[in-house]
Design a protein around this nucleic acid. Structure first.
Lengths: 175, 175
DNA sequence: TTTACTGCAAATATTTTGCAATATC
DNA sequence: GATATTGCAAAATATTTGCAGTAAA
């Protein structure tokens, strides 16, 4: 194991999410590697959504911990299985990951591709009460597509002469 | 144009969806090709979800109309833009397409990967009334993940000795 | 006749896998 | 010491693109 006191401390953390991951690893006879905790640590310190690409970059540049792509994929898979992470695939974008927190609705701007989370108590209450016939619900995702206010404003301006292009698929950002 | 009376008739159809596509093509100065109508025709005669792969196979085997992969992708893109088709990416599966009809909820079984659509009047009413601050909603998707009754039954049996494997990613079905 | 479309093959992008070296338990 | 994990490179999968020939308008 690469020696990194910060990471080593993490594995002993009282942070409930870290405990959850510990338990998950124990229960599945998986090993507590520095890479896995470095990845969890980064995720715990990140708000909102990120792609695999971005996660690896953040690890490298923010955490200063270089992890191979395969390991990022591998660990993300574990975190999903451990119900710590969730994977979302929004229209026109590559897969996005986010930490599982309180249920929330995703607003996805189809112009700029920005994703915003909104708390939605009414919807959560609605879903809590909702039962589907012969189906045992585990979790759910509500994706709402539309145009955010920023893009609406820009498009209004565009009508007066300034053009704006809709981004195509996300570009690869390789080192 | 390949001569195919069925397809040619389609372009003149009174079917509102075909009209919609006609209008879309006209409005964007796009051409009315046999391939495009063959694809639309197949979609109109298919219920539920399908992947690009499956669409191409159905075209080949059911419609008897061979279309290149690029053209399938291209046309599907147009149909999405024309608001005739919708693309869904459910957890653990390749992209699925379906014709836009009435809003419905998707129940996705995380064991067998089967997707079921359910009408949900209450939810539709809820969403119709729902406004998000500074966001202009175009459409939305609700994905509910869980275990379907068939898989629940199988898993109960498994506890008594019969094992069942969760399918990994969808296998490519190349000719 | 002009220009959009198709099919092919090659290029990209994304994710998975085999394997040797290494670290965890 | 036994074996799970890592990183790398290669393979598999999924999607896009360039281009020459073809067809729609």
């Amino acid at each position: 194991m690469k020696t990194d006191s910060h990471i080593e401390n993490l594995a002993d953390s009282t942070n409930p999410v870290v405990r959850k991951f510990n338990d998950y690893l124990d229960a599945h006879n998986l090993r507590k590697t520095a890479e896995r905790y470095a990845i969890l640590d980064r995720i715990l310190n990140t708000n909102g959504h990120f792609s695999i690409e971005e996660l690896q970059q953040m690890l490298d540049q923010v955490s200063g911990f270089r992890v191979s792509r395969s390991t990022v994929y591998n660990t993300v898979e574990l975190l999903i299985d451990a119900k710590i992470l969730r994977r979302h695939v929004f229209e026109g974008m590559q897969a996005q990951y986010e930490r599982i927190t309180l249920p929330h609705t995703h607003l996805i701007c189809t112009v700029c591709n920005k994703v915003k989370e909104v708390k939605d108590t009414n919807f959560a209450a609605f879903m809590n009460a909702r039962r589907f016939n012969a189906f045992n619900t585990d979790h759910y995702s509500l994706y709402v597509y539309g145009v955010c206010s920023t893009c609406a404003r820009k498009s209004k301006r565009a009508k007066h002469g300034i053009k704006e292009e809709k981004p195509k698929r996300q570009q690869k950002t390789k080192d």
